[in-house]
Nucleic acid binder design. Structure first.
Lengths: 109, 109
DNA sequence: TTTTAATATTGCAATATTACGATAAAGTGT
DNA sequence: ACACTTTATCGTAATATTGCAATATTAAAA
């Protein structure tokens, strides 16, 4: 098929998977890390930083934006992309909670 | 193409992306959450819990195992799958560090 | 040893993803 | 208006993912 049976899982599970899936590509990890360390957030700078063609980078930026991980604001004829803290908080909280439960649980194997 | 240009990114970026990609599917999130909350870790129980056919679940388990997120031990003719803490620690640390840097950084948009 | 149970693998169809050239769109500067 | 810059979109080829039926494998149980 190729299509996930999303309707069979909870909204929360689908939402979590969607966030992590958006980060599940090295180019998108590289974009996030660049936005984190650099003071530049202009789309063109990201394109120059990555070893990918401009349309490809644009596509990755779109996916990150759709997932809520970044937001873009128009600045003249350029676009400034920034990390959206809220999405990162959500992920962090998910793994924090996950970790707490792991510590409490006895591993059976 | 369909194939990621992994050779263009750092090993760390590729490793991070691979871990998150493995969790980027609702069925695999559901498996991890089941293993976290349940005392059962037998493969058959997971198959019964999920709305997917046995071969599909087996495939998802394989991906989680390849990513290092779970480990399986043979128990008679059943297999017990458990979460591998180390992988979760890695992810948690990644987002903790990410978050620290976000807080320090002034968002530009 | 034959049957049964549990899990993995194979093969395949449907769909999604990745990448990029070509082109469009939208703003800037002249 | 015109060229120029920046980013997005379209179209398409190559590859990957998802899901399952059928089948193989492996170990227990009878």
């Amino acid at each position: 098929m190729g299509a996930s049976k999303t309707e069979s899982f909870t909204d929360k599970q689908n939402a979590t998977a969607a966030l992590l899936k958006a980060l599940g590509h090295p180019a998108r990890i590289a974009i996030m890390e660049y936005l984190l360390k650099s003071n530049e957030c202009i789309c063109g700078d990201i394109v120059n930083e990555l070893p990918l063609a401009q349309p490809t980078v644009s596509q990755h930026l779109k996916e990150l934006k759709n997932a809520g991980l970044i937001k873009g604001t128009i600045d003249g004829n350029a676009i400034c992309y920034c990390i959206d803290d809220k999405a990162i908080q959500k992920i962090k909280q998910y793994f924090d909670a996950f970790n707490v439960k792991i510590v409490k649980k006895k591993s059976c194997c």
